[in-house]
């Protein structure tokens, strides 16, 4: 079943009960949470995802629980849990939805070693993937949301690029894009039909909102794609769009540095990264407007 066909009350009931089981790209997850903002956020952001109706194996069992203080309405906190482990300290309950998203990223990044997992956005057009690694503040997520929302690119992932260790192909995850601060307004303006979650204020990353993956991206989550470009974006206010070639050896090191599990894979990890870099054209991209970016990426897509 598709989540949007299940009434909101039922979604909340499953989250409070045994868990809501969702297919998330190649993974399955059972999610539990009694928190209303989580139920509302999941119903909106994962509306196009498939639910699993039969009991069975799930890759990840996660929960975000509210731990009341003595007085429930004062300093209520929430805690993310993955089978007894948690990467975060308890945080204000208002942060529950982004915490679930970050917790899910953490589960995947620290366990799913069937993939080489790179901290990078991955978008696809014409069967080729553009990998966008980025330091915080480089504008990776904004660029990704703009190109997917209005640039004709398909979202594979905003945070975690998954490369199949056996085939070297990119695996779509098609989960929400996490936007920070002014990027929220930029995307609201640039992609008028984007579905955004409520904003969460004062998280460790500041003000954040999540953008739902496009229906097309979610529907095509089974379609893998080949590496095409490695592009290191940099947002510079007032700068003209500049695309310049990047040394492949340098791109290799940056890609490996941005990978969560490159070192875990040893020789095999080296070979997979080397193959990806060999296939790709590598660039640095400086930009200040999404209009420019859409144009540059469109002409890039024509070259392959």
């Amino acid at each position: 079943m598709i989540l949007s066909s299940i009434p909101g009350g039922e979604v909340a009931r499953r989250l409070r009960g045994d868990g809501l089981s969702l297919r998330l790209g190649p993974f399955t997850a059972a999610i539990r949470s009694p928190i209303a903002s989580v139920a509302e956020g999941i119903a909106a952001l994962y509306a196009d995802n498939e639910t699993l109706e039969e009991p069975g194996f799930r890759d990840f069992h996660l929960s975000v629980d509210a731990s009341g203080g003595l007085r429930r309405w004062v300093r209520r906190q929430c805690r993310f849990d993955f089978d007894g482990a948690s990467p975060f300290k308890p945080l204000p309950v208002a942060h529950a939805l982004p915490i679930l998203e970050w917790g899910l990223n953490w589960c995947i990044a620290s366990n799913a070693h069937r993939y080489l997992i790179i901290h990078a956005a991955a978008i696809e057009r014409g069967g080729r993937v553009a990998i966008l690694p980025g330091e915080p503040g480089a504008g990776k997520s904004t660029l990704c949301a703009g190109l997917v929302g209005s640039g004709g690119w398909r979202l594979l992932s905003d945070e975690l690029s998954l490369i199949d260790m056996a085939t070297g192909r990119f695996i779509p995850l098609a989960r929400p894009i996490s936007l920070k601060k002014e990027s929220i307004e930029i995307i609201r303006g640039f992609v008028p039909d984007a579905v955004l979650s409520r904003e969460t204020h004062d998280t460790t990353k500041g003000r954040v909102a999540l953008v739902k993956a496009t229906a097309d991206s979610v529907r095509r989550a089974g379609e893998t794609a080949a590496a095409g470009w490695i592009i290191f974006p940099r947002f510079v206010p007032g700068a003209p769009p500049i695309l310049e070639r990047q040394s492949k050896a340098a791109a290799f090191i940056e890609l490996a540095t941005n990978a969560f599990n490159y070192s875990i894979h040893g020789k095999r990890g080296f070979t997979v990264v080397a193959d990806v870099v060999e296939t790709c054209e590598c660039y640095r991209f400086t930009y200040c407007s999404l209009d420019d970016a859409v144009q540059v990426f469109a002409s890039l897509a024509l070259t392959r």
Partner: peptide
């Protein structure tokens, strides 16, 4: 897959 992934980590 999960068993195999744990083995990858153990070998590392």
């Amino acid at each position: 897959r999960h068993l195999h992934e744990a083995d990858v980590v153990a070998r590392k």
